[in-house]
């Protein structure tokens, strides 16, 4: 079991260490994920119903209100 874990660890460790193009790609992926999750999601994309209401009952009441009384 220990041997297997060691093998898997070295498999990934050596794989990452020997990457050439991959290193630059990982930098891009990390920057991109940071922008998506820590800038877009945190500052701009709050879940509207989750943010404004605490229970599903309130959420469904709100949506029903929205659907049955569309704004003019």
């Amino acid at each position: 079991m220990t041997q297997l874990i060691k093998y898997i660890f070295h498999f990934y460790f050596d794989g990452f260490r020997n990457m050439t193009v991959g290193k630059r790609l990982w930098v891009i992926v990390i920057i991109k994920l940071f922008i998506i999750f820590f800038i877009f999601k945190l500052f701009f994309f709050h879940d509207f119903l989750q943010t404004h209401f605490t229970t599903n009952q309130q959420r469904s009441n709100y949506v029903i209100e929205q659907l049955t009384n569309p704004k003019n």
């Binding site: 998506i36 994309f45 879940d47 509207f48 119903l49 989750q50 949506v63 929205q66 659907l67």
Partner: peptide
């Protein structure tokens, strides 16, 4: 594609609920 899911929750919440 995850951004599309963000948009569902923020911009299209009536749809997401429905």
């Amino acid at each position: 594609g995850i951004i599309l899911e963000f948009e569902f929750g923020t911009n299209w919440s009536n749809y997401s609920w429905f």
